[in-house]
Amino acid sequence: MRTSNHLIGLLNFLTFLLSIPILGGGIWLSTRANNTDCLKFLQWPLIVIGVAIMVVSLAGFAGACYRSSFLMWLYLFVMFFIIAALIGFIIFAYAVTDKGSGRVVINRGYLEYNLDDYQGTWLERRVSDNGYWAKIASCVRDSRVCSKMGRVVGGIPETAEMFYLRKLSPVQSGCCKPPTGCSYDYRNETFWSPGAGGVVGTNPDCALWSNDQQELCYRCNSCKAGILASLKKSWRKVSVINIVVLIILVIAYVIACAAFRNNRRIDNDEPYGEARMEKSRPSRIQL
């Protein structure tokens, strides 16, 4: 038990290091919120949790090194809520990204996205809100994700056949081109003309497509679905890191409880093992 202080100090130092990936994940989500995913509130809980783990780990490390019962008590108290918050964040992240995935299109290298696949989720309702979507669409437009799609191969702009084989991101597929079922003809990455038979299909996005580079398919449901698919991909990546850190945090917390009891015994000058048993139950003196 006496070695628990050293072990908890080591684990807290490791936890401090692991808080860096959590903080980095939040910052990464923040950068994507500014240029790809365009939802600017999801990263803050992760950043707050990362900073909290970093600070509390330092307190736990100091408490273990200096056998400070107050710091250890503070560490245990705050870390309990941090672990609970991290568990809640992981569950929330998986729950709101449970539905939806890209649909395979024949003779296309990219997937296409349908908003119906995400119906009923909290994220879908938030993204579909007209007022909120106006901000997201503006963010996507300002990120210039569509204008960056252009490619030149051997000094010649890529052909339709080359474009059809590309691996597009969900946002590029949903926001920067019309749905394949609308039968638009490719002119370049963001300029499409109606086919010989005109625009076909019952997809309402077909009528919403515009060659205006400030409009494109930003009003389309496929664009909303692309944003949701991009968010799902980002959140799932970050959640893997969170799960690993959560496991280590729980282990550190259990050992910290043992270290705290150890510090209490030292503060109370209580002996260990059999000596403690003899102190609590002294043998009867025979006369």
Rank of each mutant, 00 (worst) to 15 (best):
A259P: 02
D267R: 07
P178E: 05
I49S: 01
M277H: 10
S4H: 08
Y186Q: 09
N242T: 03
G9E: 07
C139S: 11
N203K: 09
F77V: 07
E189Q: 14
I49M: 01
Q286E: 11
K237V: 11
E161N: 10
I255M: 06
K135H: 10
S210C: 04
W192V: 06
S210F: 01
N5I: 02
I227D: 13
I8G: 00
L115N: 15
K99Y: 10
I20C: 01
A259N: 08
K224D: 14
V250R: 12
V78N: 07
Y186L: 07
S138R: 12
D212E: 07
S222I: 01
A84G: 13
G25V: 05
S222N: 12
Q119T: 15
S19Y: 00
Y110G: 06
G150D: 10
H6Y: 07
T190D: 07
R67N: 06
I20W: 01
F80M: 03
V104C: 03
V153G: 12
L111R: 14
G174A: 13
R281Y: 13
Y186R: 11
P178R: 10
E278S: 00
A207Q: 15
G63Q: 02
R265T: 00
C257Q: 04
R67Q: 13
V127M: 13
C217I: 02
S183P: 00
V244C: 03
T180M: 05
E112A: 09
V250W: 04
S239A: 15
L74I: 01
F191I: 09
G131Y: 12
P204M: 13
Y218P: 08
A259K: 04
L58Y: 05
N114V: 13
C223Q: 08
S147C: 03
D267M: 05
P157S: 14
F260T: 12
D129A: 14
V171I: 15
R219L: 10
V240E: 15
W73G: 06
L18E: 01
C206H: 13
R166S: 11
I266S: 09
L11T: 04
C257D: 00
S68F: 03
R284P: 02
L46N: 02
T97Y: 08
Y186H: 12
N35L: 04
L29A: 09
V105H: 09
R281E: 09
D269N: 14
G26A: 10
D269V: 03
R144E: 02
S230A: 15
F41A: 06
K237D: 09
T31P: 01
C139D: 11
G154D: 15
V104E: 13
N188A: 08
L287Y: 12
R103D: 11
V240P: 05
A95S: 15
A137D: 11
L228I: 13
R166V: 08
P170H: 14
S280G: 04
K232W: 10
P194A: 12
K135N: 12
M149T: 07
R264G: 09
S239V: 15
A93Q: 08
A85N: 03
L7P: 06
S30G: 10
V200E: 11
L14P: 00
C176I: 08
L18N: 01
P170C: 12
V200L: 09
I90K: 05
Q286M: 10
R219W: 05
F70Q: 01
